[in-house]
């Protein structure tokens, strides 16, 4: 039994301009101690996937699918019981640079709050634990007394990580944890996260628009586009033998290291309007290899080998040509 399994997950948002079909049936499996990356441009549904996992979808809902944690089905749980899963078993590292930490509480208070919500222990013991955690993420334990604005961007992100790991959760969702940080600090944090993951045998769901980061941080990668999975497989295979035209575009058009643009340079066109997604394969309007079949028919799951999976009508013929 896998630690976490997601089956055919569909999430919709309700906006003034219509229903946004942000997730159109996503499958994902996460094993114990594994780090899986979710890649894609902004608006591809990767953050929706993260929010669906902890059931924090605003102005929308999960309309279909199953999420199982060690076999236990999560979507049917009443809100109160699910609150016991949050942070305790599934926690989230959000973007500290984008205000993931509350500016009016000290770092210590915020870490302790998460601990005491789920564990019966003395406040002093929790604070000692918080200091221990800060040491683990390689910052001064005395910073428990500091407010977020007194920390640099990198330190805030480390504090955020310490907070999310406090209860040694089964699953950690890292939603763009290094965006808006300096490249050097970015690398340091990824390295540290990877180390902690190995040490604590954590299962991490790593979300980023930047394939180069996922390449360093993840065992497996899933490429998303238009709310669907395009291709997934272990990191090495995916880079060596990409099957989907979109994956190739992503790999070839590695975002420039210095500019942090969330858009691809090598790929013309825009991400699809998800209130009215394209027919057939949702990537067809931007695909260089588009055929009639791509417009009319949705591609089905094809196994290349093992867990290398691709959703493209022409995946096999292309690889044979190569």
């Amino acid at each position: 039994m896998s630690l976490l399994s997601i089956e055919n997950l569909k999430t919709h948002y309700y906006t003034d301009s219509g229903v946004v079909k942000a997730l159109g049936g996503v499958d994902l499996i996460l094993e114990k101690g594994e780090s899986v990356g979710i890649a894609g441009e902004s608006g591809c549904g990767k953050s929706t996937l993260a929010l669906s996992l902890i059931r924090l979808i605003k102005n929308g809902e999960i309309i279909h699918g199953k999420i199982r944690l060690e076999g236990q089905s999560l979507l049917e749980l009443p809100e109160k019981e699910f609150n016991r899963i949050r942070w305790n078993r599934i926690s989230m590292i959000s973007q500290a640079a984008m205000g993931g930490l509350n500016p009016v509480f000290t770092i210590g208070t915020q870490i302790v709050e998460g601990i005491l919500q789920h564990r019966k222990m003395k406040k002093r013991a929790a604070m000692a634990l918080a200091r221990e955690l800060l040491r683990k993420v390689e910052i001064d334990p005395d910073m428990v007394k500091n407010y977020p604005h007194q920390l640099s961007g990198g330190m805030k992100q480390r504090a955020m990580i310490a907070m999310a790991l406090a209860l040694e959760p089964d699953v950690v969702i890292a939603d763009e944890p290094t965006t808006a940080l300096d490249v050097v600090i970015q690398a340091q944090i990824i390295k540290m996260l990877r180390k902690l993951q190995k040490e604590m045998n954590l299962s991490v769901l790593f979300i980023s628009h930047d394939l180069s980061i996922l390449a360093q941080a993840c065992d497996r990668i899933m490429i998303m586009y238009g709310g669907k999975c395009m291709e997934s497989g272990d990191t090495a295979t995916l880079f060596k033998n990409p099957q989907h035209p979109y994956t190739r575009a992503l790999i070839n058009a590695f975002p420039d290291l210095k500019s942090r643009r969330d858009k691809l340079t090598g790929l013309p066109g825009n991400t699809p309007d998800m209130t009215n997604p394209p027919t057939g394969c949702c990537f067809h309007p931007r695909c260089a290899l588009v055929k009639d079949r791509c417009i009319s028919e949705q591609p089905v799951r094809q196994e290349i080998n093992g867990d290398h999976v691709v959703y493209c009508h022409f995946a096999k013929p292309l690889s044979e040509e190569n």
């Binding site: 924090l56 609150n83 899963i85 942070w87 926690s91 989230m92 959000s94 205000g99 500016p103 789920h118």
Partner: peptide, 14 residues
């Protein structure tokens, strides 16, 4: 709408 509210909710707070 701030991110830290999401963090707080993710903590499982009431």
């Amino acid at each position: 709408k701030e991110q830290y509210i999401l963090t707080a909710e993710a903590k499982g707070l009431s």
